[in-house]
Design a protein around this nucleic acid. Sequence first.
DNA 1: CATGAATGAGCCTTCATTCAT
DNA 2: TATGAATGAAGGCTCATTCAT
Lengths: 206, 206, 206, 206
Amino acid sequence: MKKKISKSTEERILDAAIKIFSKKGYSAATTSEIAREAKVAEGTIFRYFPKKKELLHGILLKAIDIFGKEIIIKPLEEIIEENKDKSLEEILKVIIINRVKIFEEYFDYIKVILCEIQFHDDIRQLFIDKILKKIIETVERLVDIAKDRGEIKDIESMIIIRSVIGMVFMMLIQRQFVPLETSISNIEEEIDLIIDIFMNGIKKKD
Amino acid sequence: MKKKISKSTEERILDAAIKIFSKKGYSAATTSEIAREAKVAEGTIFRYFPKKKELLHGILLKAIDIFGKEIIIKPLEEIIEENKDKSLEEILKVIIINRVKIFEEYFDYIKVILCEIQFHDDIRQLFIDKILKKIIETVERLVDIAKDRGEIKDIESMIIIRSVIGMVFMMLIQRQFVPLETSISNIEEEIDLIIDIFMNGIKKKD
Amino acid sequence: MKKKISKSTEERILDAAIKIFSKKGYSAATTSEIAREAKVAEGTIFRYFPKKKELLHGILLKAIDIFGKEIIIKPLEEIIEENKDKSLEEILKVIIINRVKIFEEYFDYIKVILCEIQFHDDIRQLFIDKILKKIIETVERLVDIAKDRGEIKDIESMIIIRSVIGMVFMMLIQRQFVPLETSISNIEEEIDLIIDIFMNGIKKKD
Amino acid sequence: MKKKISKSTEERILDAAIKIFSKKGYSAATTSEIAREAKVAEGTIFRYFPKKKELLHGILLKAIDIFGKEIIIKPLEEIIEENKDKSLEEILKVIIINRVKIFEEYFDYIKVILCEIQFHDDIRQLFIDKILKKIIETVERLVDIAKDRGEIKDIESMIIIRSVIGMVFMMLIQRQFVPLETSISNIEEEIDLIIDIFMNGIKKKD
DNA sequence: CATGAATGAGCCTTCATTCAT
DNA sequence: TATGAATGAAGGCTCATTCAT
């Protein structure tokens, strides 16, 4: 029975920071705007985050927490376990739908992090070590399971992972930035199509 | 025998701006650093680009020029024409290799633009109208040709395009940011694999 | 027993601004010099006056306050009341001496405002509405009283007002800018002469 | 037989400078705007006036020329000569009307000079020596003539001069800046009233 | 002699950071 | 602990001035 405690000051600041960073970018965001958004005095921010950059670290740490612990490891293993008898397509669909939901929920985190890893070496390293590698490891296990089942070709796992992530990522990006009109009404249908392409290719068989 | 004329001041400034923007991000970049890089006085920048933001516009305009005129339209049609008799896989490979080269050559432009379209509505609109739509239109024609030839399944073109772009894009991103060790030595081999997945899927056929 | 509280930061900045503006003019004055004069950091100025121009507004607002509330309305009525039985000349003298004192005390305000109303429409409008019209209204009442008493000719009030103000104004200007040697030692004597000219003209009666 | 030669470059620059200075003030005016107004290149200005401030000097010199030679000395003497037999009022009226015309024609010069003498010692000194003293000397002669004729009271000439100048000046200022509605339709009528006040005072005689 | 591109000092302004309350 | 006034370094931008053409 989780009691909803009113957010701590630190949390409020971090939430505000994510919001502003994702809207303006890290550099263009100002601590004063973050303070206003968090409804604290500007000085208060610096009690918790003595340098502006530590807000970015704070965000990444929170992202590591969310993506790492709560999302990637546990649920993925669970999903596979719970769907042992299902086909690879079906498992993939469950996973992708789940990931997509998370992606959209934490879209602001992703935007900020993907942008800023270009400019901050420390942030990049942390991201690679604590998030990216974890994701890859986990997906790799999934691919290996599939390979063991003898269901997929013997292609370098990295390529496979990258491919499916790329396809899904592009779908998400498009949905966020360029809501071009497709005849495909809902996201589940889109995911089905992607999985179909991914699993069976686009070539017509005779 | 093209003689390399010494670059105009405006070009030098724009080149410097791209370099600095891609290294630090638009907001964190300073006009004084750009001036230093371009070897001009800071004031000179403002003769050509009265506001810092116009440097960003200048970059986008140049990107539109490069991607639009020189790369997308003409060459793609040529490639298809020249490879009429080849298989779809072969044509795709030629195209992707060509695109990848361009992508890597103008990687700084892409980084800057993709980051900043999030924060500047005008930049985003220009990008969508002048680059993205053009790319999609062109690739769509390619897909339609393939569909006409009866070589690929009847899937929504947008999904197909997005998928292949996503796969290639992820490959490029990885090569740029996370040079993880793969057993795949060169890019051509990687492209072959991507095309194979894209065309034939990853499912093993019995 | 009014205790002289140490001036607020805002007051110190405004006082410094008036001083520098009156010495150099608004445009030639720099915020850094004003900051130095006010003994605050340059950034502090912008906490109170986000744009340099708002310093000018601040000055005008203060002038409106001083000239409007404290000086023009109340004291003038009082003076007239208190000197009911005196001759017009005597009343005029009391008023002019009082005005002259104020004028000299706030000479910097006047210099700045009179110069800058030429260049800033908003400042001009405020000045006309809040100061000039008030002055004219008040003096007009005085003239009307004199006319009612039957002591002065029936000349358009505006002309009368303008004339006496012009005479006094010129005297003040001269005293400030061109301290030409006059045999008239003190200002009271000068005022007497002006009043004499104003009341009786310069023509010798036979 | 004055031939109207097309204005020299120097003249065009000076005319442009007066125009811009009077609109924006000396400091806020830019050499580039002056160049545009004068239809010359920015560099050209500096062939004739190596420092911006020399434009101000140039303007003052031109004003000295206009006010000094052409206007004050010669015509005033002429007017007095030609109107020997007329009354002082009539002579005064002729003079004032003439002065007013000049004042309005060269209003931009006056505005610029009166503003800037506050901030530039050299300009002020020149103005006092070459214009103000000349005006005073001349008017003084006029007053002395009147005194000799026994027509006016024996008041310090300076006071007399200042008074009439102040009255006229205020009238002009008002006409320029605050065109308040007067029942007096035309300027001649106003001048008549001013002269009347000045000569006969405002007191009703019994 | 005229041009206008280039300069760079210095301006107004912002904003991360400090610190007395 | 929280505040917000004060700071001052640094940024974007302007503009008088120079100089090669």
